[in-house]
Design a protein around this nucleic acid. Structure first.
Lengths: 305, 305
DNA sequence: AATATGTTTATTATTATTAAAGACAGTTGA
DNA sequence: TCAACTGTCTTTAATAATAATAAACATATT
């Protein structure tokens, strides 16, 4: 009897299997704890516990009578339940989707097929819908007049605007940072970052690939001094877009990375001098380079309007 | 026979009624255009046209036989179909929801009941889900671990961060603006804005309520010089939050608005002098006042952590 | 050959259904 | 006696099923 299962019973299955393990640790004839105790122990509602106990009774693993739950036998491998295929949540979807768009180089204007994509990414269709709705805030997708979604970015325009926005946010961070007292913990982190940069510069010829994560770390530290939820939300998108593209732009990679390292070092030094104008100028220089790299990365990859 | 209607047939009903009007303009005995022609004329798919034609045939309004569609009679009032209650789209929802939160002063931490709210706002539940998902990008709501949504903002912290973010964006706009050539169209718009401000200042004692829309217009013009989709997206939220609160903060409203008008005028003058530093200083002053007003507005209204 | 209709398929929007959570009330036993 | 437990019921959110629509394809007609 296969009935439509409107909602996955993953929680029930997991709780049931956990209960089996719990029973196996007890002697046959022992009493199980109360429903409330089991519920809070397994982190599920009493409803789930009760369904599981009922099934344990049906399988003669326990004798259920009112509040008496006596263990009758230990479980076998056959007793364990198989759960439905686990679907991904919306958090995992984000990076997987952007990964798909950027790696596969999905052209702007592509109509996004929710039914198909939900299979490809193994998520529920409504999860995708919600995700697209949230992405529409960043102008990466738009809703079509009568249903459906279209991929907008990443065009050249998008890259320019994203870079400009990044510049606005990051210059703000830099100005904040330059004004922080010397005993602020960020200075120690910058010192260690400087060391990592110098270290990579030594072995740049071989290890230039190591720059991308270092770059991400560097900008994260710079922006960490501004505690603003809007800044942080954008940092996520910015970081994703920039680093995916850097990863796939192979032209003059070694030189680009070496130049970027020197720009980072210059910015660190300018920051340490506590000269806001000098720091801002150094940051501007580096962000302009970054923008150019992103743009050229888009141009080498086919479409860019 | 009431069967579950998975999707509203609004399009069909509207197309059918339009077809009735179209038929009434023809002589009885006339031939109707082809399905393709009708479809593109009414802006719907051929599928909809075909269902409508079939129904017209059933009601003996036309005689449908292959490609012959002969008009048999004109329609009466009874022939017209009643459409299902029209649900709101996600765009209308945005202002209605924020309106509800800010007017009703819904406290932070409130669990948002999708089923209930979808009735109150007369939208489909999934529309609300998508909407919340997109709002979560602005940190106004968050998803709970196992389903459901919680309202986070508008706390004092939120207001501070929003104001700071606004300041970052708007100072950027101001610096851009000050650098624009004198023949740029924005200067003419500023001139006319200045006049409107001076005008309102004359009659401030009676018409101080007129300031809120003027304020919105003023900031919109300032920010219009930056063509960046991220800036624009944020402007929407910023504008909504600020102006709703101003609307409900009645303490010293006349004085507050008069002060704000003078700050606006000072900024316009500073901008016209093309002195970026002076303009930035004027903008900073006004934005700081704005921030204080928002904060005090939150404090007078109960909860603010 | 062009344009029409008939048919089928694919996809989205919405409803119906189930799983799960939580609330309430009655019950039991130390 | 009362605190803890169980039985029952209500509410809510996640998902499958389904109707409406769009679009593609095939066939027919002028």
């Amino acid at each position: 009897m296969i009935r439509p299962m409107a909602r996955t019973n993953t929680r029930f299955v997991e709780a049931y299997n956990e209960l089996l393990s719990l029973c196996d640790q007890l002697e046959v004839g022992a009493y199980l704890p109360s429903e409330n105790a089991l519920a809070s122990q397994l982190g599920v509602s009493r409803t789930v516990i009760r369904s599981a106990l009922t099934r344990l009774d049906d399988c003669s693993i326990i004798a259920l009578d009112g509040r008496e739950k006596i263990l009758r036998r230990h479980s076998t491998e056959d007793d364990r339940l198989e759960g439905p295929p686990v679907l991904l949540g919306i958090e995992e979807l984000e990076s997987r989707f952007l990964d798909w768009v950027l790696r596969m180089d999905v052209p702007p204007g592509t109509v996004l097929n929710v039914a198909q994509l939900s299979k490809d990414f193994s998520v529920a269709t409504h999860t995708l819908q919600e995700f697209f709705s949230s992405l529409s805030r960043f102008g990466i997708v738009v809703r079509r007049p009568r249903g459906g979604w279209v991929l907008l970015g990443f065009t050249k325009n998008y890259a320019v605007e994203l870079s400009d926005f990044r510049t606005v946010l990051e210059l703000n961070s830099v100005r904040h940072l330059a004004a922080l007292p010397m005993d602020h913990e960020v200075w120690a982190r910058l010192d260690s970052l400087e060391q990592e940069h110098l270290d990579l510069l030594q072995r740049i010829d071989n290890d230039f690939h190591d720059f991308s994560p270092l770059d991400e770390k560097f900008h994260a530290v710079i922006n960490s001094v501004v505690t603003n939820r809007f800044v942080k939300e954008f940092q996520k998108i910015i970081s994703l877009v920039f680093h995916y593209h850097f990863q796939w732009n192979k032209t003059h990679e070694r030189e680009r990375n070496e130049d970027a390292i020197r720009e980072h070092l210059a910015l660190i030094e300018a920051l340490r001098s506590r000269d806001a104008d000098k720091a801002e100028a150094a940051a501007r220089r580096h962000l302009a380079t970054s923008k150019q790299t992103l743009l050229s990365s888009l141009e080498t990859n086919s479409h860019a309007t």
